[in-house]
Nucleic acid binder design. Structure first.
Lengths: 135, 135
DNA sequence: TATATTTAAATTGTATACAAGTTAAATATA
DNA sequence: TATATTTAACTTGTATACAATTTAAATATA
């Protein structure tokens, strides 16, 4: 088997390729690709614990702590106390965070299409379903 | 569009999932997932420049410098002078490197199959061809 | 030939990514 | 209730990942 055909190589390369592409699109907002994804998830479900968010997007708790730190530092979200559990935090979009993520929301669908422009619509759907199946 | 269906998220997640899985399999050799991939490429084409290797596997030159450093430090490869170009190096497997990468070679195909066990053989082929198309 | 430009690696700095361990609070159990 | 266990987030340390810069050597051009 050629190493070029090794699935671990192919998935790693595709993940990096997507992240580089996406980063170029969100850099204008001062964001990394991972940060932009976190914000998009928070637009769907705000005021969630770090634990919940990490399970949703499959981010390690250590990774998420750093991500939240940096997004808080630039004023896009904030940690709030969780009244139900003093160990936990609530990750909340700020007003500025809402503004920024709405702009990202406006481009994400088109950038998905652009990134997959080498595929037909059907191929795009198949790719997504296969990726879901293996994760 | 749900963020779960964003291709940048899906590719990032799949890449991380594959890397975690592969790392578990090569950790017994004291290797990370990226290191094991680099060694597999060197098994196919040894004594190549860092530049060439980076283009082949789409690794940044800075990333590769570090990877080569660490693989050299544990004795699996070495930098040699390139007689044709004194700026360049030649990345070469050591005897120990050959020994280790041959053991990895023995497991990589089965681990590919195991990782993709949720897919049929056809689906696996389709996934690979779609990933190739977008990279 | 002398100078300018380009190029291969390495370096620096920031951000994931994740294993392992810590801390404080919640929950289970004696 | 007192103690043990579990849990959420954070911390620490190592390894990618990559943009930007530096260094030294190769190549192009005046």
């Amino acid at each position: 088997m050629e190493t070029q055909d090794c699935i671990f190589f192919q998935l790693s390369r595709a993940g990096r390729s997507g992240a580089r592409y996406w980063h170029k699109k969100v850099a204008k907002f001062g964001l990394t690709s991972a940060q932009a994804l976190v914000l998009l998830f928070l637009l769907e479900e705000d005021q969630v614990t770090s634990k919940y968010l990490g399970e949703k997007i499959e981010f390690d708790s250590a990774t998420l702590t750093g991500l939240i730190d940096r997004l808080a530092k630039i004023g896009l979200l904030e940690r709030r106390n969780n009244p139900n559990d003093r160990r936990a935090i609530l990750v909340c979009l700020t007003q500025q965070g809402h503004k920024t993520v709405n702009q990202i929301k406006n481009i994400v669908e088109n950038e998905n299409k652009a990134f997959l422009s080498n595929l037909t619509k059907e191929e795009g759907l198949i790719l997504r379903s296969l990726l879901k199946k293996i994760c």
